[in-house]
Design a protein around this nucleic acid. Structure first.
Lengths: 125, 125
DNA sequence: AAGATTGTATGATAAGATTCATACAATCTC
DNA sequence: GAGATTGTATGAATCTTATCATACAATCTT
């Protein structure tokens, strides 16, 4: 289940906030493959935001291969990971995304890398 | 010392990225109270960004009471040290979040950690 | 005092983001 | 098939971001 979307008045464009929050929910597993996303209109109304703005966020998610939209049905978490992409490219993409999160949180990449290695059970080299 | 500032093409306004990165550096202790910030012009030139944009980021930081600017002298970290609360806990939270994303993407934590190290190693000046 | 450095300011311009209003198209339910 | 739901699309208006060019003011160095 998708935790309630929230908007902050911190200069980050609304559609970026929506895109990142939903992408996070998908990556985190809160929204599993095939799960239905809230309707664009639902999001627009609940957040008092324009339908076009929500559409932009959803379109960006589709662009990233995270969701698929079907007219008349709704929007769903995409089933497969993009197959045409090489694995190393996927890793780089994830790393770039994560790097942005880390910077926003004021965490250096080295700090995060170390914390991840710690989580994985191995000690740093 | 302030770690190299970087910009990402992810829809977040440049001045917001600069503001958040510098605020993070201050909160993290990379920039201690009284320390001098890089010149607005230095930042503008090194990142190929307009002086006005950098000024906007700095003005936002001054608005938040994080830095003070003195004409002719430079910009400095404000004296009242910002409350850096439980930093290691923040890092662990971020790491857990990111770990979930990596797992959803089929990327091992070690692979991601290495990719992050790579990103951090070739940071632009 | 002179020159260089640094922050401050402005006005024009272009691109991006957001809203409003409205309409159409595909899908589902009855 | 009729009606409701949902995604798709457009065009205008407004505000925000970012750039460019230029200039001024305070401070420091010499």
């Amino acid at each position: 289940m998708l935790r309630a979307l929230t908007l902050q008045d911190n200069g980050v464009p609304i559609y970026v906030q929506l895109r990142d929050q939903i992408a996070g929910a998908i990556g985190r597993g809160d929204l599993k493959a095939g799960a239905r996303l809230p309707t664009m209109r639902e999001v627009a109304v609940s957040l008092a935001v324009d339908l076009n703005t929500v559409q932009r966020a959803y379109a960006a998610l589709e662009e990233d291969g995270l969701v698929t939209m079907v007219q008349g049905r709704g929007s769903f978490v995409a089933d497969p990971a993009p197959p045409s992409r090489s694995r190393s490219a996927e890793i780089r993409t994830l790393a770039a995304k994560v790097a942005a999160q880390a910077q926003a949180a004021g965490v250096s990449l080295d700090e995060l890398a170390e914390a991840l290695r710690h989580l994985s059970g191995r000690a740093a080299p």
